[in-house]
Design a protein around this nucleic acid. Structure first.
Lengths: 150, 150
DNA sequence: GCTGAAAGACGGACGTC
DNA sequence: GACGTCCGTCTTTCAGC
């Protein structure tokens, strides 16, 4: 992992569909070594995958919320049960477990406020092991999917 | 935007480097119409971009934190000043403005705890217009970059 | 949906530093 | 060991019809 590899990663974070030819010219390398490096980055797991970034509004998802959840500590498997239940909700597009309060942060999308209310009442509020759950609406995205810094 | 378009978007969220040939066979379409649809999805902005998902640890970023920030309401441009300052920090890889408390949620990466401490003291704690800022460490990612639901 | 031309991908070989 | 340049061939792209 040297400067060239990092440069390749940066370019591919900006445009994941770059051709090897174009990528090679951007990082000032010829095609074959660039191709070799890319293959190594992919097989070593440095590049986890490629993804199209889809405009949520284009698929009718105009509503986004952040959910804060804190668990009760009942059993050893409170965590596992909760996490399984979260993973089963497709509207949860991002979820992380934190140290401290809250225990979990979820990013949830829905079609509109009504759909979110249904989702909240029927699924989020019923998640197992939860002591306290609250949610707030996302007003705006400042930064989304920015390339990792050096 | 019909079922086929949605299917195309789903497949490309799972693998952004699918070739048209492969994509066409997955959505049960022949190559040309699939290609036309893809071009339309790209030019209409439904597909915002393509991006390589890079393993942060592979580039030496082993630390991740969530920052909660609430602003003081001094002037009309408190918000703009704060947002500009946030955007200038490359370690902030995701940022959203919320309704309610906190006003902002930032996702921050760093090489290690020491680097994060420096970043916090020298930059995050000095962000303009902030009334209260606090941060917590990310223990684990449950869900990351999941395809948008239907 | 099909065709055809241009571009790109990808493996190998080989010489250089 | 890594880069660069040649060489193949196969696949993909994308504008015609």
């Amino acid at each position: 992992m040297d400067g060239l590899d990092r440069k390749i990663l940066t370019e591919l974070q900006l445009d994941g569909r770059l051709t090897i030819t174009e990528l090679a010219s951007r990082v000032q390398l010829s095609v074959s070594p660039c191709h070799r490096r890319l293959r190594d980055l992919e097989s070593s797991g440095a590049i986890r995958r490629y993804r199209a970034v889809v405009n949520a509004a284009a698929v009718g998802l105009n509503f986004e919320a952040i959910v804060f959840a804190t668990l009760r500590w009942e059993h050893r498997d409170t965590v596992a049960t909760f996490e399984t239940a979260v993973e089963a909700i497709p509207q949860v597009v991002q979820a992380q477990r934190l140290f401290g309060e809250p225990d979990y942060l979820l990013r949830v999308v829905a079609q509109d406020l009504a759909a979110y209310q249904r989702l909240y009442d029927e699924q989020l509020a019923k998640l197992p092991g939860v002591q306290r759950i609250s949610s707030t609406l996302v007003m705006k995205h400042l930064i989304e999917d920015r390339p990792l810094p050096h």
